[in-house]
Design a protein around this nucleic acid. Structure first.
Lengths: 175, 175
DNA sequence: TTGACGCCCATAGAACCCCATGTTATCCCA
DNA sequence: TGGGATAACATGGGGTTCTATGGGCGTCAA
């Protein structure tokens, strides 16, 4: 891929291009580079991000990636705290110390630095997961693991709700 | 690195270079020198700091490094303490008496003095941690330890806030 | 002297730019 | 409607620049 071609096509698809959706796994090459999925790049471009801000997940071995507004939001949040209390310090330590900028090269790739690998466990492949306003980068195996847990939690939640409202079936098969 | 090359490149990236962000570990050589990470040097240059001021962290085994505005920040912090208590005086002594200037050599390195080593426990490697308006220097092991504690506190904070309403989001899952 | 510190140089590896290729998805026209 | 032309994509690699890091040599002061 070269130099953001395909704008014409994307124009037509804009209505579905303003959120990060779906997921895919890409290979990391010998130089440590990996392509950001084209649909994600389209969102990035549409939102006008020239740089990406990536943050180590607080309780997951994943990177949360978004635009600079993501960082702005954190900083605004910190500004609400008493700057000399520990909480403000903790928050800054987290969003500044555990955050980094990702630069997209001309081919739409980013480099998997040690900073990212250490936290995610990524080695050869990277899974990109759309999360609406942002997206995540996972080590594929850990993503699967995490996905299973999430499903389980949701299932339990639904079962609890179903039982409470005495409704036998919202339908296991029904979408 | 020699003589602040790469200015041309940095020009293009300036818009994202106004904060100290991310973290990395560098080796200390036989002469006690260690490279300040290039992105940090770019910020230093952009902010026009001709000299760096390093203070011992008040409650961490780390050095806080920044421009003179960092000193203002410390003084505000101290001003919050009751001047009749020992604390304020101790703090003042601590940061004024124990602060030091760091000189960047032509290659962008600083010297890890005993002054720094004593407070941080640094021996062979130094971890640089961006904190937005300033950055910190840690002994890598202690940094990891401290990072774990911070994450734990933030996680608790988030869990406390979750369910209440739209959360301020210190969280990994919902920026 | 000796050791701390300034200045300079050298180099391996990382990061970045540009181009190439195989594969798949899409489009257009017969 | 089928099949070839076309576009887009993920991936690979070459070459250049930048960075971290090691070391040499003078100066200045204890």
């Amino acid at each position: 891929m070269r130099r953001w071609k395909g704008v014409r096509r994307r124009k037509r698809l804009q209505h579905i291009m303003d959120r990060f959706l779906s997921s895919s796994v890409n290979r990391i090459d010998a130089k440590g580079r990996v392509s950001v999925p084209a649909p994600f790049r389209a969102v990035v471009q549409k939102r006008g991000y020239c740089e990406l801000y990536a943050l180590r997940g607080l309780d997951t071995p994943a990177m949360d990636v978004g635009g600079l507004d993501l960082l702005d939001r954190y900083e605004q949040r910190i500004a609400q705290e008493d700057p000399f209390q520990r909480t403000a310090d903790d928050m800054s330590f987290f969003c500044h110390g555990d955050g980094t900028f990702l630069k997209l090269d001309q081919d739409g790739r980013i480099v998997m630095t040690d900073f990212i690998r250490e936290h995610t466990g990524i080695t050869q492949e990277a899974a990109f997961v759309g999360r609406g306003q942002f997206f995540q980068i996972w080590e594929p195996g850990r993503l699967a693991e995490h996905g299973a847990k999430v499903r389980e939690r949701l299932l339990k939640l639904r079962q609890a709700a179903t039982g409470a409202s005495a409704r036998p079936s919202t339908g296991g098969d029904a979408p």
